[in-house]
Design a protein around this nucleic acid. Structure first.
Lengths: 340, 340
DNA sequence: CTGAAAGCGCTAACAC
DNA sequence: GTGTTAGCGCTTTCAG
């Protein structure tokens, strides 16, 4: 820790302190090429003593190699994405790649800016949520010349690779399960997010399959902001006051669903006899509820893992045996709120 | 989109395409210095047409300026940190600084590696959770020569600046409120995380203040892994079977507390008459519960904002009017589970 | 096994 | 307003 002025240490400082050429110091610090154990030791000592931290900026410029993977997601507050992140991290940790997160807040404009910003650091790959992007964003992704994996959704055409579930199908399957269980007076409660394409696709698939069964949604309600749990309570109450005949409510995510469930249990409803419920995502949270909400696993961790694996293989040059389009299949968890 | 080979575009490409010198192109793209409207337009056109994305690596090396702020946190899955992140983002968005997140999983070793990795990109500042770091980490932070803000906690000595709450004090205050309400048979349920220093400090402050009131904890239980809500249920049950005389349970966080609350309500306990409960954090989730859990706000967003503001000011060179040690004061929310 | 030279793509600091 | 010249701190490449 002898560096008392503010100039950051350079390879040259280590070189001088150890009496070894910069080039050899560089080799030691990167574990590249053969270096005698003796010099290696001297270099390591010197580097440690000085507290040298390599400058990756210079390294990246010289080698045109950047071990960063840009991960672009809409939000960190929706539990879904941290879980995808853990899948990504878990896989990348076994390589020398590192995830770097950018958040778009579901805004296409911001997505464009964040993407631009990240690409300007020349990452080795991009993992980005969703298939809907501005034309400029798609152009950037194509032009970047690096592997790009679009995640979460497979209902659309990717720029390069994609890993996810079909939300349209998820909506359809839930609708079928609900009809099969005999429910007919069905309501829907979701987030008011015109830009949450995946929620929208679920909704579309849902109504489509209901229609095929000759059933139409009785009522629907969209909310924005606030605690999802509280909103679930509130909107469930409102909707049931308006339509006491409802015998099922489908929620666009588990948190509002859980709110609805708590409300109904409070009020002494017979769930799932009198009224059935289902959400989407299969969040861990549900395990602690008095009754387990029916849901559908969105394969979050697996999506992250698969996407990371695709990036890692492509960066490593494995061009074969890399599946570029991976559709994962969510399964219905009936829980205790949906009759079989 | 004329770049069909894989070589990324450079300033030179834009320069040639527009017939303007590289230097002037650079000036236009950075909005620096005076450039005539005409050339500016030509450059912008060319850049856009080619789909040029600047290379920040080269830019950073040449200017030795990196607009990145390293944010190092233990986890993204604990709601607390995404909230701190939004505080940070909200403030940094008004500057040209950008947060970059690194996750340590509460492991000092990993913290060290992540820190090293991030510092090697020469960020303009560091925001790091906690005051406890390996000696090597502290040395790196000191040697980096950039503003460093340690967040969440103020019970200790920072390397540079710190923003947070006193967890020891938080624990003490909760203990006092509990005693004042007349509870005497008190249990504690927390996470089994030897490395969660803040939870430990709360626990220490808690037992200390109880002791001062002549009360000792009747029972305690630590868990790890699994759904916090489910664990809260389970451990509450276990503890009450062992000690039916308990009249209060203090939980190390709101999620397990919520699990306990749901369990007790299920079983028909009179909360807070027969038994009182409190958690920590004041998470939004609580708003949707049948009864509002007593808690203590950890000032998460505000911590993020303040830390970001400190970094931003220091980077901008405002050396004055920057408070380097900021203690925020959490307040008790009595909710419906703690008698006054 | 080690070193010297030549850039990587950009910007600071000067010219003009 | 615009261009020129040197690097930034590393790694690549090629000699020894």
């Amino acid at each position: 820790m002898a560096n008392d002025d503010k100039r950051p240490l350079t390879l040259r400082d280590v070189s001088e302190a150890s009496g070894v050429s910069e080039m050899t110091v560089s080799r030691v610090l990167r574990n590249r090429g053969d270096v005698s154990a003796a010099t290696r030791e001297r270099v390591l000592q010197a580097a440690k003593r000085l507290g040298y931290v390599p400058n990756k900026i210079a390294g990246a410029l010289a080698s045109s190699r950047v071990n960063l993977v840009a991960v672009i997601i809409p939000s960190l507050r929706n539990m879904v994405f941290p879980e995808v992140m853990s899948g990504i991290s878990a896989v990348l940790e076994q390589t020398d790649l590192q995830p770097v997160v950018g958040v778009t807040d579901y805004l296409p404009d911001k997505e464009e800016r964040v993407l631009y910003e990240m690409l300007s650091w020349r990452p080795s790959g991009v993992i980005i949520a969703g298939l809907e992007h501005s034309e400029a964003s798609r152009a950037m992704l194509r032009a970047a010349g690096i592997p790009v994996v679009e995640i979460m959704d497979v209902d659309g055409t990717p720029v390069d690779a994609m890993v996810g579930v079909s939300h349209r199908r998820a909506g359809r399957e839930m609708a079928r399960a609900i009809l099969k269980a005999g429910y007919r007076q069905i309501g829907f409660i979701g987030t008011k997010m015109p830009l949450d394409y995946r929620a929208r696709k679920r909704f579309e698939g849902f109504t489509e399959a209901l229609a095929k069964g000759g059933v139409e949604i009785v009522d629907q309600e969209f909310y924005s902001g606030g605690s999802a749990l509280a909103k679930g309570r509130e909107l469930t109450k409102v909707m049931l006051e308006r339509h006491p005949e409802l015998d099922f409510i489908y929620y666009s995510n588990d948190m509002i669903g859980a709110g609805g469930l708590l409300y109904l249990l409070d009020k002494g409803y017979d769930v799932p006899g009198q009224i059935g419920l289902a959400g989407f995502n299969g969040v861990e949270l549900l395990d602690g509820l008095p009754r387990k909400l029916a849901s559908m696993d969105a394969c979050r961790v697996e999506i992250g893992e698969t996407a990371a694996r695709i990036i890692a293989s492509r960066v490593a040059g494995d061009t074969e045996d890399v599946q570029n389009i991976v559709e994962l299949t969510p399964t219905i968890a009936y829980g205790d709120t949906l009759k079989r």
